[in-house]
Simulated scan of single mutants.
Amino acid sequence: MVPVFDSQPGGSERVYVFHGTDSTQVLGPEHLMARVRALLTAAGASPAPAPAPHPDIASRPFTAESLQHPGDAGPGARPREHSTVSELSVGLGAEQFWDRVEAGSWATWRDRWPGAAQGPLFPPSTPQWLSDAPRWELDPLAPALGPAASGGWVRSPAQAWDEPGPTSPPERSAETGHEHHRGVGLFQLTDLESFWVFASERDTPEIVARCESLAAAHPAFSWLTGYFDPRDVPGSLRLPAECLPVLHADLEAAGFAVDTWW
Rank of each mutant, 00 (worst) to 15 (best):
W109I: 11
W113Y: 11
G93A: 12
R112N: 12
G104C: 04
R80T: 00
G91R: 14
L121W: 09
P120L: 14
R100E: 01
V101G: 07
Q118I: 08
W113C: 09
Q96H: 13
G76I: 00
F122Q: 07
P79N: 04
D111T: 13
G91M: 07
A116L: 14
D111W: 09
L88S: 06
G119M: 05
S89N: 11
P75C: 08
G93L: 04
F97G: 08
S86R: 09
R78F: 02
T84P: 00
G93M: 05
Q96A: 15
S89G: 09
E87A: 10
P75K: 05
G91D: 13
F97H: 05
R110N: 06
E87C: 07
V101P: 08
G115Y: 08
L88A: 00
V101T: 06
V85K: 07
A117N: 08
P120E: 15
L92V: 00
P79C: 03
V85F: 07
G93W: 05
P114A: 04
G119T: 06
A103W: 05
G93P: 02
L121V: 11
P75S: 13
G119L: 04
R110F: 08
H82Q: 12
S83Y: 01
R110H: 10
L88E: 01
H82C: 07
R78C: 03
G76W: 00
P75G: 05
G93H: 09
W109C: 15
H82I: 03
E81F: 07
V85T: 14
G119I: 03
G115K: 09
A94G: 06
V101Q: 02
A116D: 11
T84M: 01
A107F: 03
V90I: 12
V85H: 10
L121P: 05
E95H: 11
R110I: 11
G76S: 00
D99V: 05
R100H: 12
P120Q: 12
Q118M: 13
V85Y: 06
P79H: 02
A77E: 07
R112F: 12
P120W: 07
W106F: 14
E102C: 08
V90S: 06
A77Y: 06
A116G: 10
A107K: 12
S89H: 10
Q96M: 11
L88C: 01
D99H: 13
L92I: 00
R100I: 01
G119F: 08
F122D: 08
P75M: 08
L88N: 00
S89I: 00
S83D: 04
A117H: 06
L88K: 01
R78A: 12
A107R: 13
W106P: 01
D111P: 06
A94Y: 11
G76L: 02
W113A: 14
R80K: 10
G76M: 02
R78K: 07
A116C: 09
